[in-house]
Computed example of a mutant assay.
Amino acid sequence: MNVSLSSWFVILLALLAANLPFINERLFALVPLKSGGQAAVKPVWVRLLELFALYALVGLFAYVLEANIGNTFRQGWEFYAVTGCMFLVLAYPGYVLRYLKKHR
């Protein structure tokens, strides 16, 4: 896989992973949450923890792709601050659909 294709793949994966907590009521889209035998609504703090875990998972996947292409680069706190903010910006459409759009 060349550098350009792997870069676009990571960006697309980040877009999908950032919106995943907001488009369903399951934990990581796999585990149904139940309360008293009925499906429960996922609280905001669970969505944020899921968002953080998916950020780490996408970062790990990107690191593996970078290692397969060539040498990996050391990253400082600035890198994680910028990519974390970018991940939150990519999550904005899912947030709008979940919390800001009126459901009729």
Rank of each mutant, 00 (worst) to 15 (best):
F28N: 11
A91H: 01
Y55F: 14
R47A: 11
F28G: 11
A56N: 05
P43I: 02
A81W: 01
A14D: 00
F28P: 14
L5Y: 10
Y99R: 05
L48Q: 09
L57D: 06
E50A: 05
A91E: 10
T72H: 06
F79D: 05
L12H: 03
L97C: 08
P93A: 04
S35A: 10
L90W: 08
L30S: 12
S4W: 12
S7K: 11
L97F: 12
W8F: 15
A91K: 01
T83C: 04
R98L: 08
Y95R: 07
L97G: 02
F52I: 10
Q38F: 10
T72W: 01
L88R: 07
L20R: 07
F73G: 02
R26N: 14
L90M: 14
L57A: 15
A29I: 04
L88S: 15
G70K: 10
F73C: 00
R98Q: 06
V96N: 04
S6N: 12
G37A: 11
V58D: 01
V64E: 11
T83N: 08
V82Q: 04
C85S: 15
V96Y: 07
E66T: 11
I11K: 02
K34F: 09
L65A: 13
V96T: 08
A17K: 04
M86R: 08
F52D: 03
R26E: 11
A53T: 03
P43D: 04
F73M: 13
L5K: 15
F28E: 01
E25V: 03
M86F: 10
N24G: 15
L15N: 01
T72M: 12
L57P: 09
Q75D: 03
N68Y: 00
F61D: 00
G94S: 03
P21Y: 03
V3M: 13
L51K: 01
W8S: 14
S6F: 09
T83I: 01
A40E: 09
N19M: 10
R74C: 03
L12Y: 03
F28K: 12
I69A: 12
P21G: 14
A17Q: 01
C85R: 13
V44P: 07
L33T: 03
V64C: 07
P32T: 08
E78H: 14
I23F: 09
N68D: 06
R74W: 07
E50Y: 02
F79V: 06
V44N: 01
L33A: 00
V58Q: 04
I11F: 15
